[in-house]
Design a protein around this nucleic acid. Structure first.
Length: 716
DNA sequence: ATCGATATCGTTTTT
DNA sequence: CGATATCGAT
């Protein structure tokens, strides 16, 4: 029977959720309780048992990764094709709708999407064009203001100014919107806002989507902001069944507009919604869950959940009080070595921290010890400067009105177009209310510039026109190839010395591959391949699978770790001021969010959790003495094993500072030939400090000059 | 235009 | 302290 096929691997609460009568449900899903499982099985249930066509289902997530994962899992469960099911992110789905109804939404057919970097540049240009002082009105703040307004669904004329500065911010917002409109671009927030407005203002379309979507499912609902909630409501017709899945205890994005209250709001707006709690945890040991429960209980106003497991109690949580951040890092390294000896693979181990800056010391320790690692959350592929340059060429070729693209590449690579020339173009564009490209053409026609500038500008115009002509008949990957060479970007980066330039060229060449791959996956028929590719680059800069197979330690912030799990987790930097962060510890609301962040960290661990803090930590060039995090004391003592005491008494060689102090500082001198297990052979060219802190500068035969701690070198 | 000196600043991040 | 931005000198 279909019912049993779908339900038999689920626990009673999960079964209740999956087989709930056709209607609204609010699923409070604790960490590791199988929420994605419930969501995918529910969709299978709707299709197989309730006979809802996949065509009538809309499933919304926050990240592309979650959307892809959900689609894959559903496809493997269904007996019918799921191609027509709408599964995607808020932004991706909005994009799809705006492409389909660009005219009704008041957009140009070839509209493109600004990422936050493009948005920042655009706002800065607008501030300058308004003759405002960048110091008095920092673009960053204006960007924050504009995005916050859009998240609340307010257009410039709907914002209530608070003071004079507020007045100006509205003016910036207004001018920014006009600039976007002229350029034919929209930002991330616009995707949601315009889609919402489209449905509000267009009864016909609204009815169309209401008739189409009979079931609406939302993942990570606790992360929705005001506009997203309104967006969801406007898609749900009177006969639509809504299932939202979320965990108020894992809401960690309040600072970027997420509203936990949306959960309560949902209960009020849809009073018939059945509330189902998923509290059985399949991830962590009893010890880890007890710690997590005790911790989160300190928060007021929770909806209330208590995680439990049928599994074992497991090992105690190990707490280590390090002397300083280096000690902390080497404690982690030594534990990793123990785990390695016990045949753990490195990919099972995660090192988590509150802020990115903390990774450096840990990375150094791992590197010194020859342990491979991977840091998540660095610069993404489509955010790299050279890739953004290449994309800007493509964008300008695609749409000459794209001022952001124009500004980026007018003099990249440098072609003798100076600041003064660009200012003149900007002024003319502003005065006539036209795009930069048109302003440039007009000024050239009027012979506005001196001979030198005029010929440089002509070369630029010809370059763009030529590229436009040349590539039009080619496939997308050929187009990209033409552009990266024809634009001179490859030659430009070839001149950049060192490894930097080389990687940049590799990245540019990789863009051709990316285009090729994109093409093979097929593009929607209402867009040109180029236009679709550009949107993809802005919206789905989703990379990181290649190295996922490497066996290495995983380093990431607590925020990045949400949704992941690891057999062994190191939660580092558990100190007041750092975690909870000093900017968040005085406001009770923010403090609770920090605690939820800690809860997220603790519940990432499956078998073993280590928590560490440093008594002294060098921060911003100063030594800071912090107390151990309050979150440590919120975990019952009987769950915790203090490594420092135990190792001092029973296993003194493993953990104490002595184990990584240099055995002798006397054996190194300048000119000494040394060996390092990663960098190979080299010669000492400088020595700094002494004893534990002694650092030496070594010129290695293979890898150049590096500064490192002397104890990791062997005398040859 | 390119390099080097100086100033500044210092959560969390997806789309 | 260290990364990044900005500015001034060649």
């Amino acid at each position: 029977m279909k019912h049993n096929m779908i339900l038999n691997s689920l626990n009673p609460a999960q079964q209740d959720a999956v087989s709930a009568p056709f209607g609204h449900q609010l699923i409070l899903a604790g960490a590791g309780s199988g929420k994605t499982r419930v969501l995918t099985h529910r969709i299978a249930w709707l299709v197989e048992v309730e006979n809802i066509s996949p065509f009538n289902i809309l499933a919304v997530t926050f990240t592309n990764k979650a959307a892809n994962e959900m689609r894959t899992r559903i496809e493997s469960m269904l007996s019918v094709p799921a191609r027509h099911m709408w599964i995607g992110t808020f932004h991706g789905l909005s994009h799809r709708i705006l492409r389909a109804h660009w005219e009704e939404a008041g957009l140009s057919e070839s509209f493109q999407i600004l990422d936050s970097d493009d948005q920042f540049r655009m706002i800065r240009r607008v501030i300058n064009a308004l003759n405002l002082d960048e110091d008095r009105f920092p673009p960053k703040e204006a960007q924050w203001f504009i995005n916050a307004q859009k998240e609340e669904g307010r257009e410039p004329h709907q914002v209530q100014p608070r003071d004079f500065n507020g007045q100006t911010q509205i003016k910036i917002y207004q001018a920014y919107q006009e600039a976007c409109q002229r350029s034919g671009v929209i930002d991330f927030a616009d995707l949601l806002l315009l889609t919402y407005k489209l449905l509000q203002s267009n009864a016909e379309l609204r009815l169309h989507y209401h008739q189409r979507f009979r079931a609406l499912l939302v993942d990570e609902f606790q992360d929705t902001n005001t506009i997203q909630y309104a967006w969801l409501k406007s898609f749900a017709g009177p006969d639509c069944a809504i299932m939202i899945v979320g965990d108020d205890d894992q809401s960690i994005y309040g600072w970027r507009g997420a509203r936990i209250e949306n959960i309560q709001r949902f209960s009020k707006d849809f009073p018939s919604a059945q509330i189902i709690r998923l509290e059985q945890n399949y991830r962590s040991t009893g010890t880890i869950l007890k710690a997590a429960n005790a911790l989160i209980e300190q928060n007021a106003g929770r909806l209330g959940k208590n995680l439990w497991t049928e599994g074992k109690e497991g090992e105690l949580i190990t707490l280590y009080a390090a002397f300083n951040e280096t000690d902390e890092a080497y404690f982690v390294v030594n534990r990793i070595r123990d785990l390695q000896r016990n045949h753990h693979s490195l990919r099972e181990i995660a090192i988590l921290y509150r802020s990115n800056a903390q990774s450096r010391v840990i990375e150094e320790a791992l590197m010194q010890s020859g342990i491979p690692y991977r840091v998540y959350g660095g610069l993404r592929y489509f955010d790299r400067a050279e890739i953004k340059d290449a994309l800007a060429y493509l964008r300008l070729i695609n749409n000459c009105a794209d001022d952001t693209a124009f500004e980026r590449i007018i003099n990249t690579p440098t072609r003798g177009i100076g600041d003064r020339t660009i200012v003149a173009i900007r002024e003319h564009a502003k005065a006539s209310g036209i795009t930069l490209w048109d302003a440039l053409l007009q000024l050239q026609e009027q012979n506005f510039f001196a001979a030198r500038a005029a010929s440089a500008l002509n070369a630029f115009i010809e370059l763009i026109n030529n590229l436009q002509d040349k590539i039009s008949s080619h496939t997308l990957n050929k187009q990209v190839e033409f552009v990266i060479h024809g634009s001179g970007l490859i030659d430009h980066y070839r001149k950049e010395k060192g490894e930097r330039g080389l990687t940049r060229i590799e990245n540019l060449e990789e863009l051709v591959n990316a285009a090729h791959q994109f093409m093979q996956e097929g593009t929607p028929d209402n867009m040109t391949p180029m236009s679709a590719f550009l949107s993809y680059a802005a919206l789905e800069s989703n990379d990181d699978q290649a190295s996922a197979f490497d066996d290495c330690i995983q380093l990431m912030t607590l925020h990045t770790a949400k949704g992941l799990e690891f057999p062994v987790v190191f939660l580092t930097g558990c100190e007041e001021e750092l975690f909870p962060h000093f900017l968040s510890m005085h406001d009770p609301k923010k403090l609770e969010e920090e605690r939820r962040l800690c809860y997220v960290g603790v519940t990432r661990a499956m078998r073993k959790l280590y928590m560490t803090y440093a008594e002294v930590r060098r921060m911003h060039g100063k030594e800071a003495y912090h107390r151990p995090s309050r979150f440590i004391s919120e975990i019952p003592v009987e769950l915790v094993d203090e490594a420092r005491f135990r190792t001092k008494v029973t296993r003194p060689t493993i953990v104490t500072a002595a184990s990584y102090q240099p055995k002798s500082s006397g054996k190194f001198r300048i000119g000494q030939d040394v060996h390092h297990r990663i960098f190979g052979d080299g010669t000492i060219i400088d020595i700094e400090g002494s004893g534990e802190d002694m650092k030496v500068k070594v010129r290695f035969e293979q890898v150049g000059t590096k500064q490192l701690i002397a104890s990791y070198l062997e005398v040859k």
